[in-house]
Computed example of a mutant assay.
Amino acid sequence: MQGKYAYLTGIFLVILLGTYLNWNFCCQIQDRASTAGFDPSGPPVNPLILKDSGGSFTVSQNENFRFYFSDYNIVPPLGAGVRIAIDSLKTYLDAHPNRYLEINGLYGAGERNISSYADLGLARSVQVRNYLIARGIDPEQLTNSGRAAESLVAYDSMYVGPLEFVFHEQKEAEITSPDSLASVLREDPLVIRFEWGESEITLSEAQQKKLGLLATYLELTDDHHCQVTGHTDNTSSSRFNYELGLKRAAFVKEYLIEYGIPEERIAIMSKGETEPMAGNNSEEGRALNRRTVITITE
């Protein structure tokens, strides 16, 4: 009988000990976690302001686009205020086709550019542009740029609204038709060159502009595509050069997708070393041959 009581007492003590440990190590940790990193002041308010000083449009919302330090992807979720502002912007631009919006992305000191774009600000502006297009805004009424900024509104490794929005007048000559765009892109296709053995790229301002023309052309046409063809010099084997050309073409394809061009509108291929545009007996000639050419097709 005494053994039975001892057994029951042991079970009771184990239950008490488990209850205590659960309270001490679980509940108190949850209490600490709920207050860890809490800032009673909250994130700073950097309102999203869209104002056309040359027109009659102004909208302001306390919510804004957010980006993590050294990142160019928009941090979800976007607040209702952002969506309201962009929908108002669409209504305004639809009613004023002679106006367009320049999206200037900003980046701060110490940020590392992990994108394929010339700078992190430009990469951020492209992401915002893609969002605006997804909300129904005409891509012809949007342009991109980027620059460094000395002071940005930061909170918990996050930038709130590292962007500038500037309205401009669209001159009649700048409103291009699909035929005129096709003529420009066929006569002077976008060519991206690579250093020896490399497949990464950084586009110049002129190349960025031509990429914008390509994106606009594909937006305006439903049955046309773009062809990305990789080329190399002859410093390696034919098999290696073919694979390197294909790798470069695939990299450019991902770049185009990131810019907002639908994946199904992009085809890739490699010519390897078979179609040089210059002799391979000099470094200058080999540099010209290491290229990827983007053309438009039906």
Rank of each mutant, 00 (worst) to 15 (best):
M1N: 12
Y5C: 02
A6V: 12
L8C: 05
T9V: 06
F12C: 08
L13D: 07
L17H: 10
N24Y: 10
F38D: 07
P40R: 04
P40F: 00
P47S: 09
L50T: 03
L50W: 05
K51A: 10
K51V: 10
F57G: 04
S60F: 02
S60Q: 15
Q61L: 00
E63H: 07
F67P: 07
D71K: 12
N73G: 07
N73H: 08
P76C: 00
L78R: 08
A80C: 06
V82I: 13
R83N: 10
I84K: 12
K90P: 09
L93F: 01
D94Y: 02
D94Q: 12
A95Q: 15
H96E: 01
H96F: 04
P97A: 00
N98H: 08
R99T: 07
E102G: 13
I103H: 08
I103L: 14
N104I: 14
L106W: 00
Y107V: 00
G110Q: 02
R112Y: 08
N113T: 01
I114M: 06
S115C: 06
D119S: 08
L120E: 02
G121C: 06
L122I: 09
R124H: 02
R124E: 04
V128E: 02
R129F: 02
N130I: 03
Y131W: 10
Q141E: 06
T143A: 15
N144H: 00
G146Q: 00
G146L: 01
A149L: 03
S151D: 11
Y155G: 01
V160W: 07
G161P: 10
E164F: 03
F165G: 09
V166K: 11
E169N: 15
A173T: 14
I175Q: 14
T176R: 15
S177N: 06
S177K: 10
S183L: 14
S183F: 13
L185D: 05
R186F: 07
E187D: 13
V191G: 00
E195R: 13
W196K: 15
E200G: 13
I201W: 06
I201G: 04
T202K: 14
A206G: 09
Q208D: 12
L213H: 13
T216F: 03
L218A: 06
E219H: 14
L220C: 05
L220I: 05
D222I: 04
Q227K: 13
Q227C: 09
V228K: 05
G230W: 07
D233K: 03
T235S: 13
S237R: 01
S238H: 05
R239G: 07
F240T: 10
N241L: 11
N241A: 08
E243H: 09
L244T: 08
L244I: 01
K247R: 14
A250P: 02
V252M: 02
V252R: 04
I257A: 11
G260R: 05
P262H: 07
R265V: 06
M269Y: 04
T274W: 03
E275T: 14
N281L: 11
N281S: 14
S282E: 05
S282H: 03
E283M: 12
R290V: 04
R290L: 12
I294V: 15
I296R: 03
T297D: 13
